[in-house]
Design a protein around this nucleic acid. Structure first.
Lengths: 262, 262
DNA sequence: AAAGTAAATTCCAGAATATAGAATTTAAAC
DNA sequence: GTTTAAATTCTATATTCTGGAATTTACTTT
């Protein structure tokens, strides 16, 4: 394991997630590294173009170059290219925020989103946002439709004492995953914001990600509307899966035989 | 300069911009590095979570983690947070794609975009896309309103033999920058796509970026409509600048005294 | 305006680790 | 099943990373 590369990237992450701008001292203290070391790493990061020093201030921040790198990565997402028109249509039809996610390290990572015109309620529904398995509909759906071994690893990795919808209730969460597989979709209604998540499959029944919809309760959410949203989301998810080459004969219990080809 | 960090990040960039997935051999040949070296760097990148190995394939690709990093960076953009409602309004009013850019290494980098519903013509108008100074309205406007020293450096860095709107015509480009400062906006009409770019200022007349609008000619673009688009864009740019604390007494020739505080 | 303070940066000797060739393993092709 | 090519691991050498100390820079206080 390469230490320099590791430290450099960790510093870059800290620059991204930390305060607006960080001093060498702050970074050195956070990582328990000597000032001189951090100074040199930051200098290298600056030369390569990923960090920059605020003029006058002497503090450092992560540069915008990372946006270009992320954009290049996103262009490779076939799922997104394929799902975009369906997303568009669904956002228009339901008049709310819809998004596509992929699994990253057990979390659900938003790779694309569509909003109706003048939609301003979706702060946490932007590309690049991570949603945990225990506190989002898409996170739950991804956990539910993962392979048995992946799911077990995930369940063991979750800190059940941490805050989340299922804090201290692993059993209930596992039951919910069974429900999700039976229903074919995950539901969540916390803090006045309802959400639906449905799985997206590719060939051989491999889970490729999830399709999510959010619906704040301010929008006169009747039971009928809610039911219509769920049904629209499920069928939109099926369309995307079919477009990806999935055969949906066994839907919604399609997952049961879903295993990665060895 | 830290070599390991440099090589590691260059490999990450190559993974992002290159083919879908890359073999060790391809990367090693590209960078003229020994296989074993590249293998170890990729292993480190994989451990840290920025690269991943395609199962079966043995090739490597950049992971989705970079999206999360870019998202964290984007959240720090005060210009974007402030400009968002104006963007929204302008996109709705003009019924076309509008975007905000910032300068990165002489290029114009899109940090935010808004599209009217069902707008699918904006392939190159997504967040993270770079536009060169010689082949985009926003690129031109950023060059025009930079400080004299930055502009001279930029003009010298441009390869005037390379393709671009002003290939082999540096003088014409420089004249265009003067025009832009006089008009207060940059125009571009290449390949059937018209574009307007206006500067965005912050306090002390420092250039913070540009506001751009594109208008494909399919949309029955009369001279009157075009003129209206230009005027709307210019006044929207002024509103954003004012919101950022810029005093626009000297607008549109405001730039003449614009210098970074020493 | 000048001294004092704290952080940032540079310097340097010692030591850890990156390096690149060779050997080995693995996977694919025939 | 054999062959071939690439990926990975191994290892000795030397590069360069490391972190304490010295120096410089910028900011604060009187």
């Amino acid at each position: 394991m390469n230490n320099t590369l590791h430290n450099g990237l960790k510093i870059l992450e800290f620059l991204a997630t930390g305060a607006e701008a960080l001093s060498i001292k702050e970074i050195a203290e956070y990582f328990q590294l000597p000032n001189s070391h951090v100074c040199r790493l930051l200098k290298s990061l600056t030369e390569i173009g990923y960090a920059e020093q605020i003029p006058g201030n002497r503090k450092y921040r992560i540069s915008l170059k990372i946006l270009n790198l992320a954009n290049a990565r996103l262009k490779k997402e076939n799922l997104l290219r394929l799902a975009r028109p369906y997303l568009h249509q669904l956002a228009e039809k339901l008049n709310t925020a819809v998004f596509v996610t992929r699994v990253y390290c057990g979390y659900s990572l938003i790779i694309g989103a569509e909003y109706p015109a003048f939609f301003t309620e979706a702060q946490d529904m932007v590309v690049g946002t991570l949603h945990s398995p225990t506190s989002s509909a898409c996170g739950k759906v991804c956990a539910a439709y993962s392979t048995e071994e992946v799911r077990q690893t995930l369940l063991n990795e979750i800190d059940w004492e941490q805050t989340g919808d299922y804090q201290g209730r692993r059993k209930e969460f596992e039951d919910e995953l069974v429900n999700i597989r039976q229903r074919g979709c995950a539901l969540r209604d916390v803090g006045g914001v309802g959400a639906v998540g449905v799985p997206l499959f590719e060939e051989n029944g491999i889970l490729s990600g999830a399709l999510g919809v959010m619906l704040p309760k301010e929008r006169s959410r009747t039971a009928e509307l809610w039911q219509a949203v769920i049904e629209s989301t499920v069928s939109c998810g099926k369309l995307i899966s079919i477009a990806q080459g999935a055969s949906l004969e066994e839907y919604p219990n399609y997952n049961i035989s879903a295993r990665r080809k060895k």
